[in-house]
Design a protein around this nucleic acid. Structure first.
Length: 575
RNA sequence: GGUCCUGUAGUGUAGCGGUUAUCACGUCUGCCUGUCACGCAGAAGAUCGCCAGUUCGAACCUGGUCGGGACCGCCA
């Protein structure tokens, strides 16, 4: 039985417990030991006359022991712990293993920095914080499995050793020994396989799927991560969104007892960009981006004039009652901040004491501006003039930064929404062509199919992301189930016939054998757990995570391998 | 690929051109019979990430390198 299964009602019972020595307090004549197991702590007491007194006094923290004893009511209870009213008087004690000195203290408020804790991750896992996070993760997957099983989904596994796909993220490659010179790729997602399962007739599939992407990391991005991957046949976009909403509702209820109100809000991609400068807007704050291009149509100000001449736009954020909250120096810092998003500068205006100050206080359009933005005393406005993408993304980022800096974000709320109607294509400056915004199997909106080759910029697709508090919690789409449309899509992406045949030939063939209309969604499990525990560090929800440079400080992976291994694989390093 | 921050006993920190390298926790020793952040007294423990340079003198300044973190690019 676990420590915390006992309480005051069990006084007098003889029990057998095992666990780690969390802390020992030797009062000279009396020894208290906090015994820790997964469930929590139980205080053990050893008196001087006890034959285990000597061995108890020499116990070191984190040794593993097994005791039997009798539950007593404490002489002085501790209301801060669940078992604080009782203790166990030791009758027998066996040391199962000992611990050497620890690299850091295993306490809830540890001071050890993350790199130290990552090196000894197995010790860090003993701390309540990390342990609880991972138990939340378990409860999350359990809740999801219950939900999907009840809806008649079938859990299936798809290969980890796959074929490299040309589109999308960089693949992790695995050399083949049997077929020297050729490589497997680890899956970025089970996308093609789950679609093939629909063609294979399973109708409703899910997988707790490990995925791999060889791209640079972020605070919310690891090279390997887990997706709750789902696919359904004979469904439309509404069906999948409804199914997903039910899933979120159940998970938030089961895991943290939070009630999500359905249905969730929906927003088209173009509106999310227009008003929030992001395809994953954080709606915990109201502030929106305002388009004030018209007001400055005839502006003599060079920055505005030049912007308008090159078809750019002028947008602003209004920060209510904040003019006195930002010094010139702080505004300079914000200017530097927006520059990381390619904005060339940040203009600002302050309305205080009935006068106007700021970098462009000389403008003549004040009255129109005041009227359009309903400006009031002590408001502060930030303006960016540039091309559309730069204006939106920089102001979108600035919006979030100001929200955090001024505490405008309600940390206790969850704001969900669907972002829908993503563009079918993004223009890639690097590759000088249009690439799939989502992935090349995403179905275009019906009215846009005919524009796939002629008007790529205005093609939108049956793709949807579920967004919560500024995180993309999941994304999916209705897939192309018609082989001609699929080929047209590949053509639009300028993938050569030869490449289509080589990379996707088997898939295009499969589409020809009676493909049900289908679609699906994948939820980022780590992002979901991060939301549930209110963390912004993905390493907090992974048992053995990697550092920002994709290495494991504990096992020191990746690492060099023997020449013998390389030779078997037919690989020669060029250094 | 780029920008910024960071590295000092086991852990976390102070020090920012000359110190016996600060403090706390932990560890060790002794004392202590109701603690739960137990208490008290004492002790040990640091090639200041690594290499080079500047300087009479470097933990401190400069350059490089290695490790950690955040962000931009990237992440269909």
């Amino acid at each position: 039985m676990a420590n915390t299964n006992y309480n005051i009602s069990n006084v007098g019972e003889e029990v057998s417990l095992r666990g780690w020595v969390n802390k020992k307090r030797n009062l000279g004549g009396l020894i208290f030991i906090d015994l820790r197991d997964r469930s929590g702590l139980m205080q053990l007491i050893v008196r001087p006359e006890n034959k285990f007194y000597e061995i108890s006094s020499s116990l070191k923290n984190e040794s593993v022991i097994k005791v039997t004893g009798v539950i007593l009511k404490r002489e002085s209870s501790n209301n801060n712990m669940p078992t604080g009213e009782i203790e166990v008087e030791v009758k027998n004690l066996e040391v199962l293993s000992t611990s050497i000195d620890l690299p850091f203290e295993i306490t809830d408020n540890t001071t050890a920095l993350e790199d130290t804790r990552l090196k000894y991750r197995y010790l860090d896992l003993r701390r309540n914080e990390l342990k609880n996070n991972l138990i939340i993760r378990h409860k999350t997957t359990t809740s999801i499995r219950e939900y999907l099983n009840n809806l008649d989904f079938i859990e299936m596994e798809t290969p980890i050793l796959c074929k490299s796909t040309p589109e999308g993220a960089r693949d992790y490659l695995v050399p083949s020994r049997v077929n020297k010179g050729s490589f497997y790729a680890l899956p970025q997602s089970p996308q093609i396989f789950k679609q093939l399962l629909m063609i294979g007739g399973f109708e409703k599939y899910y997988q707790v799927a490990r995925c791999f992407r060889d791209e640079d990391l972020r605070a919310d991005r690891q090279p390997e991560f887990t997706q709750i991957d789902m696919e359904m046949s004979f469904v439309n976009q509404e069906d999948i969104m409804n199914m997903t909403e039910g899933l979120f509702k159940k998970v938030f209820k089961d895991v943290i007892d939070y009630d999500i109100k359905l249905p969730l809000m929906r927003m088209k991609y173009v509106d999310a960009m227009e008003y929030y400068g992001s395809d994953k807007p954080d709606l915990r704050m109201d502030m929106k981006i305002n388009n004030i291009t018209n007001i400055f149509e005839n502006s003599e100000l060079m920055i505005f004039k030049n912007t308008l001449e090159s078809n750019g736009i002028i947008n602003c954020l209004v920060v209510k009652n904040a003019a006195s909250k930002f010094s010139r120096k702080e505004i300079d810092k914000l200017t530097e901040y927006v520059k990381t998003y390619k904005a060339k500068g940040l203009a600002y205006l302050k309305f205080a004491d009935n006068t106007l100050s700021g970098s462009i206080k000389g403008i003549t359009e004040i009255e129109e501006l005041k009227k359009k933005l309903s400006l009031e005393e002590n408001d502060l406005i930030f303006i960016v003039a540039d091309k559309y993408e730069v204006v939106k993304t920089s102001l979108g980022a600035l919006r979030l930064k100001i929200g955090r800096d001024l505490n405008l974000i309600n940390e206790n709320s969850y704001k969900f929404l669907w972002v829908t109607d993503f563009p079918s294509f993004d223009y890639s400056e690097e590759e000088n062509r249009f690439v799939a915004c989502h992935h090349p199997f995403t179905a275009p909106n019906d009215e846009d199919i005919e524009k796939l080759l002629t008007d790529k910029k205005n093609c939108y697709s049956k793709a949807y992301d579920i967004v919560c508090n500024g995180y993309e919690a999941g994304g999916g789409s209705i897939r192309i189930h018609n082989e001609q449309v699929q080929e047209k899509m590949f053509e639009a992406l300028e993938i050569s016939k030869e490449d289509i045949e080589k990379k996707f030939g088997f898939f295009v063939d499969a589409l020809k054998y009676g493909t049900p209309p289908h679609g699906g969604i994948a939820l980022g499990l780590e992002r979901l757990v991060m939301l549930l525990i209110k963390s912004n560090n993905i390493r907090d929800v992974i048992a053995f995570p990697k550092t920002a440079s994709a290495s494991d400080l504990m096992s020191e992976a990746p690492n060099y391998v023997d020449n013998k291994q390389l030779k078997e694989l037919g690989i020669k390093l060029d250094n």
